[in-house]
Amino acid sequence: MKTDFRYMRRKIFGTMMLGLSILAALAAVSMLFWILGYTFIKGISAVNLDFFTKLPTPVGVPGGGLANSIVGSIIVVGMAALMAIPVGIATAIYLSEYGRGFFASTVRFVSDVLAGVPAIVAGIVAYALVVTRMHRFSAFSGSVSLALLMLPIIIRSSEEIFRTVPDTLREASFALGVPKWKTILSIVLKTASGGLVTGTILAIARVGGEAAPLLFTSFSNSFWNFNPGQPMATLPVDLFNYSISPYQDWQQKAWAAALVLVGMVLILNISARLYLARKGFKRNG
């Protein structure tokens, strides 16, 4: 009788703890919906056509938009991608196809450690490297800092994708007399291309929302500028500056910017994941 009672107690305690773990998952999911929902409600009332097509107005002048910083974000992130993608994918090819020795494991280790470097440190490096030498803030220096952040992400995801290409494909190509380098270019790269695009899009989504490294590299302005040697407004930096300003009008713009930013980042992120999931499903099925 007594053991029965003990067993009941253990059972009840266990159910309680498992209940708490369900609660934890529920809490995390509801945080997601709370943050996204609040951003949506606050942002949707401030988003209109002007937001995408007009330049910012001075404080107190109603209307205006952030067209220049939306375009600026695309330029700065695009230049970063142009720098990081070739280096990242070439490195990943080396690591997965040739890399066996000490050199390859060092590169792997260093790029994994580089992946953990805080975004703001990448900003400082770009500042010391580019801004102090050019003697002014510039879109280019912002791109350098974002490229530093993208590089290890692309290396890691691309190497993993290359490893999922079955060796039988490589061997079939060798058996036909195709040299290794041609096999890599025409078989391995082609098979992996979908995964490479996905990994790259995820990396772009990851750095596209960063403001920290851009604050003192690409800086900001309130007019059109397409010269990468000059400061350029970006959506994250404007969002930050507007959100900590005391003006209601600017805070509202910050919420609109937040909605647009979250929308762009999540659309990139979700479509990349769905694409990968569908592809994986096809391969298995």
């Binding site: 969002l239 959100s243 980042v265």
Partner: peptide
């Protein structure tokens, strides 16, 4: 649920700050 929680990691830091 796993997907939603990983989505939480994709939200930019600024949005958390604003919230």
């Amino acid at each position: 649920v796993g997907f939603l929680i990983e989505l939480l990691a994709a939200i930019p830091s600024l949005i958390f700050g604003l919230w």
